[in-house]
Amino acid sequence: MINILHEFLSVLLSTLRDVFPIIFIIVFFQLFIIRRAFSNFKSLMIGMIYVILGMSFFLVGLDKALFPLGAVMAEQLTSPEFIQPSTDQSISIHWQDYMWVYIFGACIGFATTLAEPALIAVAIKAEQISAGGIKAWYLRLAVSIGVSFGIALGTYRIVTGIDLYLFIITGYIVVIIQTFYAPKLIVGLAYDSGGVTTSTVTVPLVTALGIGLASNIPGRDPLLDGFGLIAFASLFPIMAVLAYAQFADWLTRRSTINTPDKGN
């Protein structure tokens, strides 16, 4: 118990240290440039305390419950004992041997993104200003599916050793093409959702998976090939959200074409 308290306090301190520059900039500009006292000061303070306490509880909890298990799991799933290559030659590996890694990558990418606080924040905001036209839950689901696909493909890339930039450049081309066909309202939100998917929860688990994979596969350098999963996890949600918007758009259009027909 004392241990947890101690850990909580140290995380609380480091959260305070991270938040300090943000608070400093806000207070400085509010008081010296805008030159007005904060309205609703008490509520803002309470909210800020909630945010800081919430982040600290969240981080300590992740550290206690998820990260150790997730990291060990990533290591075990990628270890040669678990994989048991289908051939005797230890040098040649088949990408099919790592099927459980792709499945794990997809599942963990999906689940952690759904719990990512920054994404929840953006989704709440999007639902508010679109007056409910965009549902926070659907947006988060679309982003999570994108991340899940991205991580699975990213682990496949580490196993096969195909160059990272080939995937990324192809991804960019797909995103650009989608941009021209997607409803204009969604484009900004879609691009933003790429950046917010990977933070507190996803990065540590996904990094552990990438490094574990790269260090266990002959011919891969963990320092070089272990990176790149985050890039996948930030690219694919853009496609997923654009696709979701196109699909929703198509559904509405189809129903508006159908409705007058019924009237006739």
Partner: peptide
């Protein structure tokens, strides 16, 4: 806590 605080402060 974070989500409650978000709507009150950030």
């Amino acid at each position: 806590l974070f989500i409650q605080g978000l709507e009150k402060s950030l």
